[in-house]
Amino acid sequence: MVRKIGIVIIVLGIAAFSPAPINDSIKNHPKRVEQSQAQLTKQQQFNGVVPVVGQIPLSVNEVGMERDKSSRHSIEHEGEGESSMTVGTNRADKVGNGATIVEATNRVEQEVHGSKYLWLYGLIIATLGFGGWKLFQYKIEKSMPVPEFSKRFLKEFENGNS
């Protein structure tokens, strides 16, 4: 029992005097006193540019960048069942050459352009229709017999008037 109590006291003692995550190591840290304006002025001798050291990191994420095989399902399989492409590679161009888009564009444009001349077609049809109607009228008039009473009526009319 005494031994157990002793262990508990030791453990609690260690816990009590161990450094808290943030504050307790202050005592051991050398203090750097805030400097005066005069000291700052002296340090302005360091003002300036220092040339590039080594290389400028091209990517700050470059170390250890790798595909994570166990990545979340929702991310990994988000695009399943649909066509996809990889940006930044030539894959995009391999997926299609745009022939379908160009062909569809041409076809639709042709139909749209076709409708632009609808008025011309209408004019031609109206002209032909009007001409046809006049021709029909002419043929009708030509083929129709002149009523006899008309001749008699004209003769009587001429006689009556004379």
């Binding site: 304006q37 700052l40 002025t41 302005q44 001798q45 300036g48 590039v52």
Partner: peptide
């Protein structure tokens, strides 16, 4: 930044950029 050698301000940037690193202390 202030240049203590020339006792005048010194422009560290060229077209807004610095190639390398810079130490800049102000008073």
């Amino acid at each position: 930044v202030w240049n203590t050698s020339t006792s005048a301000y010194q422009r560290l940037t060229t077209s807004g950029c610095i190639s390398g690193s810079a130490v800049i202390v102000g008073t």
